[in-house]
Each structure stands twice: as structure tokens, then as C-alpha cells.
Design a protein around this nucleic acid. Sequence first.
DNA 1: TATGAATGAGATTTCATTCAT
DNA 2: TATGAATGAAATCTCATTCAT
Lengths: 210, 210, 210, 210
Amino acid sequence: MVYRRTKKVDQKLEARLQAIMQAAREEFARNGFYGTSIKDIARRAGVGIGTIYLYLRNKEALFAALVNEAYEMVLDRIARARKNATGGRQKLQASMEAALAVLQENRDLARVMLVQSPAGHPAVAEQLYDLLRRLARLVEEDVLEEIERGELPPQDAHVAALAFVGTFYQVVISWLKEGIPADLTAAGKELIAYNLRGLGYPVEGVIENA
Amino acid sequence: MVYRRTKKVDQKLEARLQAIMQAAREEFARNGFYGTSIKDIARRAGVGIGTIYLYLRNKEALFAALVNEAYEMVLDRIARARKNATGGRQKLQASMEAALAVLQENRDLARVMLVQSPAGHPAVAEQLYDLLRRLARLVEEDVLEEIERGELPPQDAHVAALAFVGTFYQVVISWLKEGIPADLTAAGKELIAYNLRGLGYPVEGVIENA
Amino acid sequence: MVYRRTKKVDQKLEARLQAIMQAAREEFARNGFYGTSIKDIARRAGVGIGTIYLYLRNKEALFAALVNEAYEMVLDRIARARKNATGGRQKLQASMEAALAVLQENRDLARVMLVQSPAGHPAVAEQLYDLLRRLARLVEEDVLEEIERGELPPQDAHVAALAFVGTFYQVVISWLKEGIPADLTAAGKELIAYNLRGLGYPVEGVIENA
Amino acid sequence: MVYRRTKKVDQKLEARLQAIMQAAREEFARNGFYGTSIKDIARRAGVGIGTIYLYLRNKEALFAALVNEAYEMVLDRIARARKNATGGRQKLQASMEAALAVLQENRDLARVMLVQSPAGHPAVAEQLYDLLRRLARLVEEDVLEEIERGELPPQDAHVAALAFVGTFYQVVISWLKEGIPADLTAAGKELIAYNLRGLGYPVEGVIENA
DNA sequence: TATGAATGAGATTTCATTCAT
DNA sequence: TATGAATGAAATCTCATTCAT
């Protein structure tokens, strides 16, 4: 009798892969790349050690897959948020809200990517920086556009974009490591205001020159 | 009755320790904690493997010593800069300039601490976060003071402080990893402006509300 | 869904463990704890280095397992021999015969425990002394009983018990190291006579007081 | 000016050697051959590490020298005791008393030789067995002589001699490791009685055959 | 003669990956 | 497809011994 790849079999395989990925997310999030062994992941996923190698080439590939998952998720969510926004300021604001929301919803993944990935193999670490770079580029484009339109004052858009991204990075790290601020999206309002002011948008609440 | 601890001997010992530390700085900066072996460091320092253990208890202690060196260096430089500053705004500005200057002068050390330390042993990784936390606390105090004085508008000083520190972190990381901005202190001016605006200081160059 | 823990697999695993233990017995017996490396044992057992760590926590645990094996074996054999004996003198005699027999049958193990264990980690070395202590206590109890019954003259039962155990220890060591006496159980008869006389049993062959 | 080996210099050198030997006795007695480093000994002796190598070829030679010291001391004391004894029984008795006395007076040395030497390098371990062998040979000669004279019944003199020596070994080990019996020479009386009875001497206190 | 910094062979142990079942 | 026992490369660290001072 021949082995047939039925839909049921496919679902089972997909479920197994998801179990492995989930176990890896949790272990890597807690113990980092070097602090997590394949055996740990296999045990938590409830599969054999060898099984993991049927689904993923090796340990690094597994880690990279997770980082990539986070990468795609963040970019995707931001892209969707920007679609519905019109105007530079709205796009920036929508991006910020989307980024915080998706991270808050996927804490383990966020931890893997933001906290643990710099420790992994250089190739993997690079992915985090690539994400940050892409986010910065998005911001930079918006800023340049706004400067051209006269909505923002002239400035070094590249540095501004890095600064912009950096504010989020730091607040998220603090949230991941210390639980402060407790509610990421609530803190987002302050953060958004900080960056809009930082970019040079005219915002209320600024002390006026006498 | 020979082999006295002469000044010449002491100098040689100190030079050896420095050679080891410098080799470690370079190797760790490039390859991270797990990507660097004691053998690598010994070879680069031009000493035997065992020699390293005469100067430092173990690999972790060596890494920690470097991270600590960066830690002290940054805090010390900032503390000295703040001494000569009067008023919250000046203190913040002096801190920012000092931080960027000391990092620019010690690129390898900066790389070890900011890029590689999150990968090291948890105890060591913590030190980076401790530094960032302390810097954030400094900023927070300044901000609270300025709010009280009416120099800054009411805001969540904690989030603002994290954002403030984050802008620097991100720009420095970009400088370390991509060489952009090429001149850290030059970029500092833009960065300082961004943060002063972000905090709510009245700065020129903001688009006025019509 | 393969790789079941079949009976055949279990047998193979058990055989492997035995191969490792046997190799360790031989190596430790000849070269002692510090003179034997894990690599030596692996090579003799025909397994990889790592395999040993699948079966035993570390080198010390492997050594301790062997010493414990000897410990249990000797005590067990003596206990069984004593069950069938009635009366102090018979119990002592049965114990002596049993001890010599079990050691003669397990020469390598005897060597590991009696000759090499004092060299191992203190915790392991202690086990030999613990065995000797327990044997001495057994003898001491028998002697005290016999004194009470008037079968033996009053004496320091503790010293007598140590002496009693010591005679065996020395003869066994000589057998292990020099092969003399060649037949341990044959020598046992003389040894038994020595100790029975030494304790004060009335035995033929003693020169009578004129 | 030429260096002259004066008496004073010689004394100083001899004192240094003694300081090293004494430190080694104490360290080896407590921590065994492998548990003691040359650095430990140097520190305790108050000399430099290299100095030890001026007086002794290497670590093994140092250990061997100590074992040999004990070896000579025990044999010498026994030889002197036997000189003043006439007759086999007196010679045996004098030997036993002398052996216990010299061990009690040199506890650290006894520990190095009897407890720690089996752990050392095989070559060194051999020396303990050599001593025991020589002591057994002395006893064996006496026993053979006494059998010939009709003072002792016919028996396997070799086994008897091993047993004889073994009683002392065990009691001394117990004294060294547990402090029981507290007074070695006091326990000697019981031990001597045990062995004289064991050999077949007619001694009082034996239960008479009815 | 005296010293202790320097050395590196060698030991133990871990763990990603393979492969017979 | 699924498993986990087996492997050995590679890393860290120790310490007896040497040798410049």
C-alpha cells in the first residue's frame, strides 16, 4: 500500500512543526540561544530529538526561523496599519501603534528577537538589525516627505529615524526585562508624543518661548 | 635571594595584563562571548593559555572585567561632565555629549558592552541593562526637576527617560555596526536637538502652530 | 512511529552498560582512579567518550558505582552465609569463608575496592572504610555475645574485631598484589584457625602449658 | 669573592629542606597526593615554588622521600627493639611494641604512608607494600624458628605472618581515621595477646577444653 | 641560591548532529 | 515518519615543571 499525503496527514505535520516552534520560542525566550539545547526543546515539544531535524535543518535554522517569524510579523502589521493612514504624521503614528501592539501580543517572540538574538550566531543577530534598519528607513522616508512638504523642519532624517526607532526599542526592552511600563500600549501615547515633538511637529504642551 | 618585585617587573606584569585585556576586547568585540575561545585570546595576546588564568579567574571574569571597564568609563565621564553643568537642560546636554564622546573614543569596548554583552552569561548581560537603567534614572531625575520648575511640560518622566536613552543606544549601535553616522559627535547635535524637543523644551526650528 | 523500547534494545543497552563497567573495572584495577582517563575506559569498552556519560553522571560516579558494587556484593554474600549459621563461632567462620570466596571470584572488583579506592575522591575512599567498619561491627557483636555466653574470655572486643578484619585485609592484599597465597580459600583455613585462636577459642594444636 | 660552603650555610640548607619536608608531611597527610599541589607545599613551607625543585627532583620524589622516611623509621625502631630481645616470643613482642610506639609518635608520617601512599604513583604505593612485606618476613622467620623449637605448633607461617601484620595495620588505620582506639600503645596489649594466641602460644585466659 | 610568572599537555565534560531501528 | 542512543570535536581549566631574573 502506498503512502498518500492526505489532508489529515498534512495537518498533523503542520501541528508538529508548530509544537516545535512554540517550544523553541519559550525556551529561547527564557534561556537564550546558547542556554537552550535541542534536547530541551524536544522535551518541551513532546517529540524526539531526531524529529526536530526532520523539520528544521539545524539549531541555528530553528532560531533563525523564529527571528524571521517575528520580523515578518512586525513588518506585516506595520504595513497593514500604514495602508489605512493618509499623510506622514498619520503613517508614523499608525506605525508606532501597530509595532507596540504586535509586540505586546507576542511577548516570547519579542524576547527572542529583541533580547536573545544579539547573542545567537552572527547571521541571526543580523536579522534584528535588519529589522531595525528597515523600520528606520520607513521612518526616514516619511520624515523626508514631511520635510519637503514643510510639515517638519529641516533635519538629518537618518539620525532622526534612528532616534525614533531607538525610543521604542528601549521602552520595549524595559517592558520585557522589568515589566515596566506594565502596559505597553498605554505607554505608547507618551512615546508617540515624545517622538512627534522630537521630529519637530507642533504639539500642544510644549513650553512656549516667552 | 633574588627575583624581587622590582618596578621593572611590575611594569611588565601590567603590560601583560593590558595585552590580554586588549586582545580580549578585540576578539569579544568581533566574535562575541561564545564565538571567542580562550585560546583565541591567548594567541592574539601572544601569551600561553595558562597565563590568562594567572590574571583572571576564568573566561566569564575576563568578559565581565571588560564590560565593567566600559560601564565605569561611561558613568565616570558623564559624572564629570555633569559637575560643570548648571541647570537641568545643561546637565542633560552635557551628559549626552560626554556619552557619545567616550564611546567614540573606545569603539571596541563599546562594541563589547553594547552589542556582545547581551549574549554573555546572564550575570554579565545584566550589567548593560544596569548601565542603561542608571542612565535612564539620571535623565528621569533631571526631567522631574525641570517639570517642577516649569521648564518642561508634565509628562511620564520614566517613559521619557527610556526614550531619551533609547535614541542614543540606537544611534550608537548603528555607528558600531554600519559606520553610520560616521562621526558620532557630529550626529550628536541632531540627537540632542531631537531629545530636547522630545522632552518639550521650546526649541527653534519647530513648525509653529498656525 | 518507530524506535520502540523493545526487549532487544533493552538487552543491548544493558550489555553496553556492562561493557563500560567491565572496562572500568579493569582499568581502575590496574591504574587507579587518577591513572585512568575516561578516554582509556571508552577505548577499552569499544564505545565513544560521550557514551559513558549517557550511562554515568561522571568519572567519580563511575568509580563509586564499582566500589559500591563490591561493597554490596561482599556484604550480601556474608549476610547470606550467616543466615545458615547457628552460634557465634559458626557465624564467624561462615562470614570468613564467604568473604574470601566472593573476593576470589571477583578479583578486579576486589582490587578496585581494596587497593584503589583509598586513592579516589574522599567520598569514595570512605566507602572502603565503611565496609571494613561494618564488618568489624559484625565481628564485635558476635564476640560480645560469645563472651557473655562464656565461650570466649573477656577482652576488648573492639580491638579484637579490628584485628580479626585486619588479618583478612592483609592476606587479600597480598593475594591481589603478589599472587601469594595463590589460593585464597585454601589459605582461609589457616586464617580461620589463627583468628579463632586469637579470639580465645579452645583449639587443638595449641602448645599446652607444661 | 668565592662562595664558601660554611657550616652555617649547610645548616641553613638543611633547615630549608626540613621545612619543605614538614610542610609536605602535613599537606599530604591531610589531602593526599593528588589533592596537594606543589604550590600548597611551598606556601606552607614559606619558600618559593621553584625552591622545592632545588631540593627534590619532582613531586613524586618528594612524596617518595616521605614514605621512605616512614619506612626507615619503622624498620629502624623495630630492629633496635629486637636487638635487646632474646627468644622468638620476646622478639615478636618487642617488634609489636616498637611499631606501635613509633607510629603513635609520628602521626602525620603514618598517615602519609599508610593512608595516602596507596593513592600516589604506583612506584610510591609499592613502598608501603614493601614495608609490610618486610615486616611479614621478619615475623615469618621468627615463627618458623619457634615452630622448629617446638614453641609454636606447625602452621603456614606465611599466612600467619600476613595475619599478624594485618592486625596492626587495621588497628592503626582505625586510629588514624577515627581516633579509635584513642591510645595506640594501650590497645597494643590486647593486640599482642590476640596475635600470640593466634600464633598458638599457650596464653592464660583461653577457655580450657573441658 | 631563590623566586614565581609562564607554559601547554592533558583531563573532564557538553551537546549538535547522525543514523540504525 | 519518528526516535533517542551514540559520537567526538571542541571548550574550559589545572598544575607540574621550567627558566629569566
